[in-house]
Design a binder for these strands. Structure first.
Lengths: 151, 151
DNA sequence: TCCGTTTTGGAATATTCTACCGAATTATCC
DNA sequence: GGATAATTCGGTAGAATATTCCAAAACGGA
């Protein structure tokens, strides 16, 4: 479904989401119109979900971030759905994964400062019904934050 | 340094990194030239680190992903630097954070399948010097994978 | 081989970017 | 407060780019 030439396009657009169609066509080695059609097809089929500017977290005023390990009391659909629905709404939660292991969920949360993080815990996380345990791992340093799949 | 109007721009460009300058100018309520200058300033100052196409992981052929908790044996600069340097090179490692808590590092790794993950562990992770412990948490479900800071 | 389908490259047109202008606004100094 | 300097503004024009269209080439199956 995703051909080799598509992977080249995706790889390039992951590195530079604003590359012009001409640059793109040249680097992947096809005509501008063929390239443009492929990109459009990738967008319409949903392989390309969208485009985003990547913003420097600290410079933008978000000094604090953490990884949370969350366990639920019970795993009824009711509680799980409620948890997922609430997490989806909170924009501080950049990522949320259901995982194997001790914790049911791994969350990455980004806020302006520690106060905001405390507030996040008190006013949001601890009020979600069915939470058994929340462990906070404050992020001391971002070694790497990538979005590009390793084609 | 980042003003309110800049935050509007950043917010919009995080949602649509390929929005035209005209759309952008309209949604944030300024002239195209003023808007364009601000965007350029944000790029040149490094607040906007870049732009990226967001690619659907599974559709692109990356079925398996995991979160790794990694602890180092010792924390000499020598070992830490070596670890960081190696992790930076591996494109399967999308994210790496130094954290408080039981593990020293949280990594998110994305690969095509379980075979590739095994290989990643055997041929890369377990060969890094000074590793004390690696715990794998396979990602069962991606609830949310965002890149937009919560302005 | 032949025919139907898909993909291609190139050209034409529509849209957008980018640099530059003078005017307006804001900041600075006396 | 008033004059001046520095910034920021909106509008515009030429260059660059995106997007559509069409005929030709490549492909696949019977």
């Amino acid at each position: 479904m995703v051909e080799e030439q598509d992977e080249k396009i995706l790889s390039e657009l992951q590195k530079d989401g604003r590359a012009t169609n001409q640059q793109l066509a040249e680097t992947v080695g096809m005509s501008t119109s063929a390239c443009w059609r492929r990109v459009r097809a990738l967008e319409e089929s949903g392989v390309i979900e969208g485009y985003a500017a990547l913003v420097a977290r600290e410079q933008a005023g978000f000094a604090t971030s953490a990884i949370l390990h969350v366990s639920l009391e019970r795993h009824d659909v009711k509680f799980v759905d409620e948890f997922v629905a609430r997490v989806m709404k909170r924009r501080e939660v950049l990522e949320c994964f259901a995982t194997t292991g001790d914790a049911d969920y791994h969350l990455r949360v980004v806020v302006r400062d520690m106060d905001a993080y405390n507030k996040f815990l008190d006013e949001f996380m601890f009020r979600i019904p069915g939470i058994r345990h929340v462990r906070t791992n404050v992020i001391l340093k971002e070694i790497k934050t990538g979005v590009a799949l390793p084609f």
